[in-house]
């Protein structure tokens, strides 16, 4: 952390290589759009580079990165409807929806079913499940990322699990 705060590139690389696949996977499964996920991934790590010197020594980098990624995604969603070009071009081209065939090719049948069930969930449920169950964030970390209280997180998680179970049950 100290090296990162001093702007050390190799310290950044360690953090980048460790967290990039998870952050990207989370963004891709949340946004369902590869181009947007990559754009947000880039902005997340550029913010890390910009703010590295101001990070506190005890910063939980994983939670910090997920919080930034989530805030960027929410901000993008809020402003997207104002972007006239998106509105005008809507429907012109099929959106690159995750997972791609290449992703699916390497996945088992169970993983494929799970990914499809996750895609069918509400955004709120998908978000909390991905953070806690799949990314392995502690409940307190996930609550901080989502900006809610730990008891609210538990309720949201329980609802999301039930919703996922319903979707998995429907597929059988």
């Amino acid at each position: 952390m100290q090296a990162l705060r001093e702007g050390d590139r190799s310290a950044f690389d360690v953090v980048y290589d460790l967290h990039r696949p998870r952050i990207h996977g989370w963004l891709l499964r949340t946004t369902r759009d590869r181009a947007i996920a990559e754009e947000l991934l880039q902005e997340t790590f550029l913010r890390l580079a910009r703010h590295a010197s101001r990070l506190r020594p005890d910063t939980n980098l994983r939670a910090w990165l997920f919080t930034v990624a989530r805030n960027l995604e929410r901000s993008r969603r809020r402003w997207a409807w104002l972007d006239a070009s998106r509105v005008l071009s809507f429907g012109d081209q099929p959106r690159a929806v995750a997972p791609t065939p290449e992703d699916l090719a390497g996945a088992s049948e169970a993983q494929r079913r799970l990914d499809l069930a996750l895609a069918a969930l509400s955004r709120t449920s998908r978000e909390v499940l991905l953070l806690v169950v799949y990314e392995g964030l502690e409940p307190s970390e996930a609550a901080a990322v989502l900006g809610i209280r730990p008891d609210a997180l538990r309720q949201r998680l329980a609802r999301a699990r039930a919703e996922l179970a319903d979707h998995l049950g429907e597929e059988r």
């Binding site: 702007g7 050390d8 590139r9 950044f12 690389d13 980048y16 990039r20 696949p21 998870r22 990207h24 996977g25 891709l28 499964r29 990559e38 991934l41 880039q42 790590f45 550029l46 890390l48 580079a49 910009r50 590295a52 995750a98 997972p99 992703d103 390497g106 996945a107 088992s108 169970a110 993983q111 799970l114 990914d115 996750l118 991905l130 799949y134």
Partner: peptide, 24 residues
């Protein structure tokens, strides 16, 4: 069941790394 990881392409990952190094 674990979700399989989805990483970026090598090209995108390197582009972001270079920009971040510049900012650092």
């Amino acid at each position: 069941t674990e979700l399989y990881p989805i990483d970026t392409s090598e090209e995108v990952a390197e582009r972001i790394r270079r920009r971040a190094h510049g900012l650092l």
